[in-house]
Write a protein that binds this DNA or RNA. Structure first.
Lengths: 185, 185
DNA sequence: GTCTATACTTCGATAGAC
DNA sequence: GTCTATCGAAGTATAGAC
């Protein structure tokens, strides 16, 4: 049963949406409240300040990534495949949360930067375990970062930065597999 | 002769610096004017509005990248080596301009997004010509994007996102060379 | 070309009614 | 838990002196 999102949840999602669509500056308390369907006073009942709202967003990201790391570890096609494929699923809750948090990080929010660095470290560790060679793992995580970077730029007037079509991802995975498993080269 | 930077130049550099250090929100006219050593009125004489200031920044980036593309084409070690090595030179004028513009793009500035997309397309075209395989070229440009992404997060409280030490870059280039030139695999 | 002074707007936050 | 009303601070921009 997808319980009807609590007001707090709706507020956080509204904040995420606005961060992604109009950036940190445009994601004002007024705009967030309006989008969440509450008044500014109502919003501030749940999150006592804008800082608390940002903290809530980062906390939400932590929860989502924790769950995702388990999925990545257990992915049938392996962590590399999972990481790359999910690096462009801009519709997923996790990716939206990730992009929204990166907007915060770019606005000099230390909490957000730290959370992103932690996640990235987890990925790097996992991928290194999977492929063996640390240099190869770094390259793979950088490709994932690149996909996120492009994803984060999308929806902002950018035409078509990276080819993230299904075919594009397949060929990308083929290239990565080429150096992940040297025996296949 | 490194002519003493004009006031307009100093203003643009101050704007870049602030965008990088405190984000789009903190880069106010007051802050930019103060950093450039002029009053707000003085600033607005050179750039009639904040929008004009942003336009100036994007225009500056265009000039810098145009020059850089020539260098990339003529790079002795090839475009791939050049692109990757210069993707982490956070001290270069071009990289600062690029990061500052990406801050603007994340704040929903269409001009900035478009300029970044154009640059990225130029890189992709050049690298594709160099390595032949479009899928490989895409992977390489994505690694470059990843390095920029991490570079853009640095100086914001992030500890150490990617290993961008000289040794880290060397091993990264080795990995990329492994699939750039299949004969070496 | 550069400055001060000021008008106008919006933002984050508080207070108190319901 | 949610709303309206309001305050003080800060942001962009204009006007006019120098």
């Amino acid at each position: 049963m997808p319980r009807p999102a609590s007001t707090s949840d709706r507020i956080l999602v509204a904040y995420e949406d606005l961060l992604i669509e109009v950036g940190e500056r445009g994601a004002t308390l007024d705009a967030v409240a309006s989008r969440a369907g509450v008044s500014k006073g109502g919003l501030l009942y749940h999150f006592g300040s804008k800082d608390a709202l940002s903290a809530g967003l980062v906390e939400r990201l932590r929860g989502l990534t924790e769950a995702d790391l388990f999925l990545m570890k257990a992915a049938p096609a392996g962590p590399v495949d999972y990481l790359i494929r999910t690096s462009i699923d801009a519709a997923s809750q996790l990716d939206r949360s990730l992009i929204a948090t990166s907007r915060l990080a770019q606005a000099a929010d230390a909490r957000a930067s730290e959370a992103l660095a932690t996640i990235r470290t987890s990925w790097l560790t996992l991928i290194t375990d999977a492929v063996g060679d640390p240099a190869v793992a770094r390259a793979i995580v950088l490709v994932s970062d690149g996909l996120y970077f492009n994803s984060a730029m999308l929806g902002m007037g950018t035409p078509d930065p990276a080819d993230v079509s299904p075919e594009g991802i397949e060929s990308l995975l083929t290239v990565l597999a080429r150096f992940s498993t040297p025996s296949a080269g």
